[in-house]
């Protein structure tokens, strides 16, 4: 472990992050609900770094297999979440903007 985050400090981080999440989303228009859900789905793909550390410290074969599955799924969460969010948001444009050539 590099830094220790325990006790009251952990609770502070938890509380402030929870408020941040609430405030960031609070005023979002309905038109962005789906992309935003997809975007927040991408953000929890950060579980990848935890899965990497868990696999990186695995000893038994069982731990390694579970770690492998964890890293695989986390990478899927991050990559898939990014691609679908990006594809959805790419399409939002104002009437002044030129349409994308050859779009499907």
């Amino acid at each position: 472990m590099i830094v220790t985050i325990t006790g009251i400090v952990a609770l502070y981080i938890f509380m402030l992050a929870a408020f941040t999440g609430y405030e960031v989303i609070a005023k979002v228009p309905v038109i962005l609900h789906t992309p935003l859900m997809s975007g927040s789905n991408f953000v929890h793909g950060i579980v990848l770094v935890g899965a990497m550390v868990a696999l990186g410290n695995a000893h038994t074969t069982l731990e390694k297999v579970i770690g492998f599955i964890g890293v695989f799924m986390a990478a899927g969460n991050a990559a898939g979440g990014y691609v679908v969010t990006e594809r959805m948001l790419e399409m939002f444009k104002a009437s002044g903007a030129k349409p994308k050539p050859g779009g499907h």
Binding site: A17, A18, G21, Y22, I25, M37, S40, V43, V47
Partner: peptide
């Protein structure tokens, strides 16, 4: 990141 998504979600 997890907490932000937890509350935003």
């Amino acid at each position: 990141a997890g907490t932000v998504v937890g509350s935003a979600g």
